[in-house]
């Protein structure tokens, strides 16, 4: 792994809300094409890490780099333009828009025509629209959603909503994809489909993925490395096999066997 190009790098990233340290000294080196899992008990700060990486929260400490350029202080949409896309723990689709529009909305920043050409419907307006349409349909057919393009997003079944959200994230033309509990609330069949879906994305787009997930079998199956958070601190990181045998991780999830002091941080 070490000879590979580092895409996303977080150095000593931390945030505190008043006196509460939500995340402390978070370090990450995400290589090209790598899939890293981020796990930890509820309230460990996983989603907070995502929010810092995507610019929703401004980290109070540390730096974040995408391909060497610093992202600190950038707005959410600027970070998306730089190449980090995400999905949400509770699905956030544009519910009253069609499936097709959901994906096409993510092309907004790439579509070049301005107000004049919009109102006059000339000078490449239709070429732009057409190419956005074609690209959106390609993405949708990748997830088997092409027949549902005219359906309102809110009417899709849960599993397909997840897929649509991932398709929309992919439409931003990202280099790094952050998936926040994609398998939450899914039945085993849907989870299996999701697994295929993630593998497909990795093959086709060569993206790096950071994955938050509670479904341990999924995490162990697909992640190349795992980072474990507890109370905002990184308590372990390594390959799935290493993590599965790590005492502190087991303690964090199941509670400690003997009352060892000071093992929290």
């Amino acid at each position: 792994m070490s000879e590979q190009k580092i895409v996303l790098q977080a150095e000593h990233l931390g945030i505190h809300f008043g006196g509460l340290k939500a995340v402390d000294d978070f370090n990450l080196e995400l290589c090209e094409g790598e899939l890293v899992g981020l796990i930890g008990p509820n309230g460990a700060g996983k989603t907070t890490v995502f929010n810092m990486l995507t610019g929703v929260y401004e980290p109070t400490e540390g730096k974040e780099y995408l391909l060497g350029s610093c992202l600190n202080g950038k707005k959410v949409y600027q970070i998306v333009a730089a190449g980090i896309a995400r999905t949400f723990q509770n699905i956030r689709l544009f519910r009253e828009m069609t499936v097709l529009e959901n994906v096409m909305a993510a092309f907004t920043k790439d579509i070049k025509y301005g107000m004049g050409r919009t109102l006059a419907r000339s000078g490449g307006f239709w070429q732009e629209e057409e190419s956005a349409y074609t690209r959106a349909m390609e993405l949708l057919s990748l997830f088997g959603l092409q027949d549902k393009k005219a359906e309102l997003a809110t009417n899709l079944p849960y599993g397909q909503q997840r897929k649509l959200e991932i398709a929309r994230a992919l439409a931003t033309d990202m280099k790094v994809l952050l998936l926040d509990e994609p398998a939450a609330g899914m039945n085993p069949t849907e989870t299996a489909e999701l697994l295929d879906c993630i593998n497909l994305i990795r093959q086709k787009f060569h993206v790096s993925i950071l994955l938050i997930e509670h479904d341990m079998s999924l995490v162990m199956k697909i992640c190349e490395r795992i980072i474990v958070l507890d109370y905002g601190c990184t308590i372990a990181s390594g390959t799935p096999a290493e993590i599965a045998g790590n005492k502190r991780v087991i303690a964090a999830y199941l509670g400690e066997e003997d009352e060892e002091e000071g093992s929290v941080c």
Binding site: V80, Y113, A132, A169, A171
Partner: peptide, 24 residues
Amino acid sequence: SKYGRAIKAIRDDEIASEAAGINT
């Protein structure tokens, strides 16, 4: 147009539209 899609996206979910790269 893209403008209409962007403002409808903002209506449906402002946070998600930021995350889809729309300068809300």
